[in-house]
Nucleic acid binder design. Structure first.
Lengths: 253, 253
DNA sequence: TCGATGGGGTTGTATAGACTTACCTAGAGT
DNA sequence: ACTCTAGGTAAGTCTATACAACCCCATCGA
């Protein structure tokens, strides 16, 4: 069925263990297509080969080609019409909404002096709620860290993180006085997906103490989850005094 | 293969032409699942039947069940883990950060019943701070409205707006019991530019009363400014009880 | 000239089956 | 207590095949 030229390689029996898991066939097909679109070989509006032609060319089954094309349509890269064909879509501009930033950069950008203190660094077992956030069963092992970030000696953020050991097995051995968790995790791998949820909370007594608040001042709480390869690798809870911080953004429409 | 009970109906040979095309099998499977999640029969975090169990129950092939579940995962409704199972995901945050939405749509999307009450509708003269927000001199005339939005008779938002008379000269004559300010302003012109800033605040006594809070619960405050033709046309202050609302967003990187 | 009717090509859906990969647990051994 | 291993379970992928739905166009007949 497969010709000798231009087909995707058969999956090897013993894949190179140092390399990442080989991309699945349909991902290879997606890559084959996006590469040609990105290079301009297939211009905007032009017609792609039909599913059956791609089957011939790439030596995979039509269902595999179909899945690749369906996902590319979901990503807005191609448009499809039954009975007609598949076409390169017009690229759509995408606005960044919430950015991933290091608070140290944030403070220094504002002219402040940043320092941080490690309060806690340990292994825990997840309770039900935390396990749910990681799509895992209760009792799974997670790393847990708590840091305080100061701007000119005033506490600005409590940074609490739960990290999957599979993603960062050496997390507990890091010196977070010099390298921040954000940078360390980012260096292992930038997340493929990020979720942010913002709450208003009244801080617990211990949080009040850490933030050196006089009373039960309202706080902003940003809960961030990051994914790599479809798995939750980190859940961070960042707590800011409401009087000292705000989130914002501006964009043209 | 299929049992007689609870299976999805076989596609009829002559579908009812008055009805829309019958939903495809995988869509029926999706509906079967989302219905049970929405009804609470399958609670957050609970495990769904495995693919093979659904194959047995619904009398469709595993590929069909798999596609339904894969799409539901893409929509954030369930999470899946190889070797473990499929679980009902945590519900997504109510409002996307930096997205311009009508709270009435927001509430109805969540299955709630929306109503609103006009507390105030007047003309004021801007003080220094407010004039600054509009890039105007103090003393400039602005329209001022305060509404409360309820979800099932529970206050969910205080909506306070300052509107430039040049942009919406008839603002005070509107019946905001039927048309909300958001829709009215949007219909005059969608903004060219939007700024959002999110705070955590402890509400004043009058705000506590309007939101029917028992105590000084932390609140989220979203301040929005919108521009049309380079001029600020609206400044809105939206106050939510922290326990009843959250902002969030998720994106791929 | 015009409309109707097929036929061929293209995507959409569905199935059965096989194999792969990942996770978890129980039990054996240390 | 801890580690290791084997087995069971569940999702992930891929194939070959079939049929349906749809579009376009060429052909045919009035």
């Amino acid at each position: 069925m497969a010709s000798d030229t231009d087909t995707l390689p058969r999956r090897t029996v013993s894949p190179d263990l140092t390399a990442a898991r080989p991309a699945s066939r349909y991902e290879q097909v997606k890559h084959y297509i996006t590469e040609r679109i990105a290079s301009g070989e297939w211009g905007v509006g032009s017609r792609l080969p039909s599913e059956n032609e791609l089957v011939e060319t790439l030596g995979v089954s039509r269902m595999t080609v179909h899945r690749a094309l369906r996902e590319l349509m979901g990503e807005g890269i191609v448009t499809r019409a039954q009975g007609v064909g598949t076409f390169v879509a017009r690229p759509a501009p995408r606005a960044e909404v919430l950015e991933l930033r290091d608070i140290a950069d944030d403070i220094q950008a504002g002219g402040g002096r940043h320092r941080s203190r490690v309060v806690l660094l340990e292994t825990i077992r997840a309770d039900g709620h935390l396990a749910l956030a990681f799509d895992q069963r209760p009792g799974v092992k997670l790393f847990h860290s708590v840091l305080i970030h100061y701007e000119d000696d005033t506490p600005l953020q409590i940074e609490e993180r739960f990290v999957s050991p599979h993603f960062a097995p050496d997390y507990l051995d890091q010196d977070f006085a010099t390298t921040h968790p954000h940078r360390y995790l980012f260096q292992i791998s930038p997340p493929h997906e990020v979720e942010h949820v913002i709450f208003a909370v009244t801080p617990e007594a211990d949080q009040q103490a850490l933030l050196e608040l006089d009373g039960p001042e309202a706080c902003l709480q940003l809960v961030r989850r990051t994914w790599v390869d479809g798995r939750v690798v980190m859940r961070g809870v960042f707590t800011y005094p409401g009087s000292r911080y705000s989130f914002g953004g501006r964009r043209q429409t």
